[in-house]
Structure formats: structure tokens, C-alpha cells
Amino acid sequence: MRKFSIGLVVVPLLLQTACQSQEELKQEKYFVEGYQLYTEHCANCHQTDGKGLEALYPPISGSDYLKNKEQIICLIRYGQNEPIVVNGRSFHRPMPANPQLTDIDVAEITTFLYNKWGGESVITDVKEVSKILDTCRVQRERAKVIN
């Protein structure tokens, strides 16, 4: 009898954690892999704590530029040459492109940035990222033709 009642409590608990983990696992995978990619490709300039380096490399932690999410997704892949203003301070050094990063890499890095420093708690899915990357690739090609 006693055994039975414990089983009643344990089984639903197990079920619940199993259900959560599907979503949670995906988010954790995005975040952890995003963190690793960030460490490898970005932290040398923007620093592990995201605070940037003086007037050379802008901060990501606390950056008001994070509101331009589509631009950020694009600059992770294509780099950034135009001067930008972050928290009222202007930056004008080029950020190198990262053509070697796949769409899923960019999605994971974006998830890491926005979970860590952008106040988000959801993932930025690769489907969404692919669409944005396509759009900015087309825009960039057009810009090239015009110039």
C-alpha cells in the first residue's frame, strides 16, 4: 500500500520532467553551444563578460543596440563596417565577418547573447535566423550592384 502511494507521486513527477526536458534541452543546447561559439569567435574582442574593451570594441552586456535584433543577426555573419552608436558612444572600427558560421551557429550565438544580456528567456530559432540572414544577404548583394 505504502509502495503504491509513493509510485503515484513519483510517476507524474517523472513524466513532468521528461516533458519539460524536450524544450529545456533544446534551449540548454542553444545556450551552451552559443556560449562556446561566443568564447571562440567573439570574446577576444567583446570579452567573456561582454563588457567590450574601452573605445575599441563595444559592450554587448547592457548595450542599447541589442534592440536591433535583425541587424545583430546579420552582423554576426557579415561583419560591420559602418560606424555605430552604442549607449551614446560611437564606434568605428570594422568588425570582421564570420562566413564560416552556419545558420544554426548564428542562432545559437544570438540565443546566448539575448538570454545572457538581452533579458530574453526563449530561444532564437534557426528557422527565424535563416530567414533574416537570407534577407540581409539579398540586401547586401543589391547594395553591391548599386555601388
Partner: peptide
């Protein structure tokens, strides 16, 4: 200056 890889790390540490 334009070195994208280890120089930013070195300048962070030298700073």
C-alpha cells in the same frame, strides 16, 4: 591593429 584573432586578447591583457 587589424589582426582579428589574438591581438585583441593581447591588448586586453597588456591594458
Amino acid at each position: 591593429i587589424s589582426c582579428p584573432t589574438i591581438c585583441p586578447k593581447m591588448k586586453t591583457q597588456m591594458k
